[in-house]
Nucleic acid binder design. Sequence first.
DNA 1: TCTGGGGTCCTAGGACCC
DNA 2: TCTGGGGTCCTAGGACCC
Length: 437
Amino acid sequence: MFSVIDCNSFYVSCERLFQPRYENRPVVVLSNNDGCVISRSNEAKALQIPMGAPAFKYENVFKQHNVKLFSPNFTLYGDISSRVMNVISRYADGMEIYSIDEAFLFLEGVTLEQSLIMHREIRERVKKEVGIPVSIGISSTKTLSKAANEIAKNNDKYGGVYNIDIKNVSQYRQDLTNLKVGDVWGIGRRYAELLRSHGVETAYQFSKCDDEWIRKNMSIVGLKTAQELRGTSCLDLEEVRPAKQSIISSKSFGKPVSELTELKEAVSTFTTRAAEKLRSEGEVAGQIRVSLLTNIHKSSDPQYFPSSSAQLMGPTDFTPDLISEALKIVNKIYRKGYLYKKAIVQLYDLRAQDKIQLGLFPKNVNNNEKTIAKNKKIMKSVDSLNNEWGSETVQFGSQGLVKQAGKVGKNKKWFQRRSMRSDRYTTRWNELLKVIC
DNA sequence: TCTGGGGTCCTAGGACCC
DNA sequence: TCTGGGGTCCTAGGACCC
């Protein structure tokens, strides 16, 4: 038996935790640059504000209905997430943290009744100890438990916990008939369109489709989804998170950038971010890729999407080496006369730090043992200083003084706007919640 | 003026090898 | 006159997830 525990409107719930005056009011969390909507309270959903909607298109709705807007505060969300997961883990032998707001459990040797009791308790404990509301779906496969979760979330009458029992044939059929095929986990916009064009509207109809046809049109992945809907488990619990295969740092700029020097500062900073992530994963990268993008939404502007990659001189996690390769690529792909809106730095061909293969000609390249040891020490010091004193306390020259007078990103066109970010209540001493009596 | 960011997996097709 | 076939590796592109 599987279950999936999903936090309701997670980012919004995190914000409400520290500012309860926004309960019962429409609340929205925006993406970086306050670009589009990435989390909505039920009240905001009721105003027909879609997920992913560009904020500027809904300005009137926001004003008219007094919608509270937040810039994203991922530091806060990450910390609250780990508290939620911590509570859940007390109940489970096997648990898979699927995303920042979601976890799967695998349950053996419990009856349905016992499972329902346990999950109601999980729901109460998470609400009481962390303050976040969750919905829970239970069934015999992961895909069915996600479907049950949809039902739990959208029907108050089930008290946040719902179970799909494939043995109760008529109910099972009813549940899957009520579920639109596009709402099935694993069926996105494209496949939903394809299926609808073949007269398949509901999850139940999809589960009755011909295997050969599914395999041919939706690959093995689609076939597994169909089988899971029929009650055959094809997707196991992944308790150990597999090592990352790539690390990306990609951000839109606050304002369009046309100058090479500014692009290089941005790419240096993104590379620094990616390298930090790389080290925290205990991995090294063999290749790096840099892409630049003009604003795809502005069709009147000339468009240009160059990108190129480079093999590193031996796998590394040393920020200066990564920056220097990234900047070589920028020099190569940059063309004057375009308004760039976004840059992407991607590290891949990753492997564990302790599996670095030394260079064949160690004197000529940067990965002989001595250099590696020295570089490791340097990065360790930089990381711990930045952890202790805030990011960008130690910067690399090519970033172009991102932090000045304690302010990060000031006067940098490419730096992102985050004007409505709440405080990092749980991770910064100087941003602790103040209670005034 | 203003449209997110970070991931995974699968497949087809080309290059290359023997 | 007849000009293979099996296998691997790599990459780009497309689908999906939250």
